[in-house]
Simulated scan of single mutants.
Amino acid sequence: MNSKVDAKATNKEKLLKHQQHLQRQRDAIAYRMKKLAAKQVEMTKKTEAVKEKIRIKYENMKRVLDEDLRITLTQLDAEQEAAERLVEEKIEDCYHLTQELDQELANIGAGVKTQESDIQNAETEKRISEALKLTDPDLIHPDEFKNEQLLGLAINLLLFIRSQVPVTKKLFQSYAAEVVLDANTAHPKLIVSPKGDTATYTETWQDVPEIPSRFDSTLNVISREGFSEGRHYWEVEVSGKTYWELGLTYPSIPRHGREEESWLGRGKESWCVEYFNGDYTAWHNGVQQELPLLSGKQFTRIGVYCSFPGGLVCFLGADTMTPLHCFCAGTFTGILHQALCPGHDNEGTNWKSLKICDASRSAPVL
């Protein structure tokens, strides 16, 4: 009887300890949630502070340009005002002379006798000749040389500003990643260059090994190496193409079976932006997002940025760093590979290769 009582007491004590343990665990998780919420607030404040500082810097640059514009236009206005005053003086001189001549003509018309000698008539002719010479409009003009210089300096300043690499470009260039395409993953209708930097569509099936890693239902190829940490940026040349897909994928993306399952962005394993006949579309987990504001825009290069710790995938028109689309993916759960699809021939308009570029160097300014 006592043994049963002791066993019951022991079980009760174990349950109490387990309950206390779970309560401590719950309290720890609740505290962690509180810390995470505080971290979220802290990150938001820091980001807003940086944004404000950057905004102020751009406003200061704008003020400097606006002040320089004001000074330049003020100088031009002063020269124009001086030239207009000179013209007004010449007009006034001509007016006074015409008044005198009108009086003489009136006197002659009225038969008024004049006692002017030939010498006086000659002096009048001389005054008229000098007035016409001094008031020649071709002799009155602003300092055109200075105007041309100012315009030239303004053009050079604009060209200099346009030649500068956008600040976001400089940042992403510091994350430039070397990307080498894995020919053993390429669809048999793709030709991957020996260096692994281009993928080209061909109508001819290539004589390649049938291996599990190879895509056989869609025109995909992925990078040889993946990454599971850090920040990475790469660029792909897309000029002259009417169809392409670029993105990121886990190695678990289907390589065989139904075609749609292997397309980039159609499953939860990958993210991509697709370009087809002038229209851009973002894809992930089968969800399609049209990007109508980009319709008709063409870029020489497309940049892809991935922040592994930030769970961020961004696509940009690398020529001007124009944002195309960003995926906030949350926590990445494994190794990621760069992926691309050069697309089919698209009625003869899409034969050019997709080429991996050196993302540490800028494309030519358009």
Rank of each mutant, 00 (worst) to 15 (best):
E116A: 11
K51Q: 11
E81W: 10
L73H: 12
D102K: 11
K146Y: 02
K51L: 00
D138K: 05
A83W: 00
Y95K: 15
V167N: 03
S117P: 02
K90Q: 02
L150C: 04
L153K: 06
Q164F: 03
L159I: 08
E79P: 03
L151E: 13
E88T: 09
Q75Y: 01
V167S: 03
M33W: 15
M33C: 11
L97M: 12
L76D: 06
L86P: 10
L134C: 08
Q99L: 06
K53P: 03
G152W: 09
E148C: 05
L86Y: 07
D102L: 14
I108V: 11
G109H: 12
H96V: 01
V167M: 04
E52M: 11
L65P: 01
R162Y: 12
I56V: 09
K126N: 14
L159S: 04
F160H: 10
A38G: 08
L65H: 13
R63H: 12
D93P: 05
K126S: 13
E79C: 00
A78Y: 02
I91Y: 08
Q75S: 11
D77M: 00
Y95R: 13
T72F: 01
G109N: 10
Q164N: 07
E67C: 04
L36M: 04
I56S: 09
R162P: 05
R127M: 01
I29S: 08
E52L: 14
D102I: 08
E84R: 05
E125H: 08
A154T: 05
T47K: 13
S163G: 05
S129F: 05
N147V: 00
Y58S: 12
E116G: 03
K90M: 02
Q103K: 02
N147L: 05
R32P: 03
T72V: 07
L134T: 00
V87R: 08
M33S: 12
F160C: 08
A122L: 05
A82W: 03
Q75V: 01
Y58A: 07
E144Q: 10
K113W: 06
A154W: 00
I140C: 02
I56Q: 14
D93G: 04
E92D: 15
K62L: 12
V64P: 02
A28P: 06
E42H: 15
H141V: 08
V50E: 11
A49C: 04
K113E: 15
Y31F: 14
T98V: 14
L65A: 13
R63Y: 15
T135H: 00
E84H: 06
D143F: 02
Y58C: 07
T168V: 10
A30N: 09
I155F: 07
L158E: 09
V41H: 07
L76P: 02
K34H: 15
A154L: 04
H141G: 13
F145I: 09
L105T: 00
T114A: 03
E148Y: 01
I56Y: 11
I54S: 04
Q75D: 09
E67N: 03
G111Q: 09
F160Q: 13
E81Y: 10
I119K: 14
A28H: 07
I108D: 04
D77F: 06
I29G: 06
A82I: 01
Q40I: 06
A30W: 03
L151I: 07
K51P: 04
L76G: 07
K57Q: 12
S117W: 02
I161K: 06
K39M: 13
Y31V: 08
K126M: 15
H96P: 00
S163F: 01
R63G: 05
V112H: 11
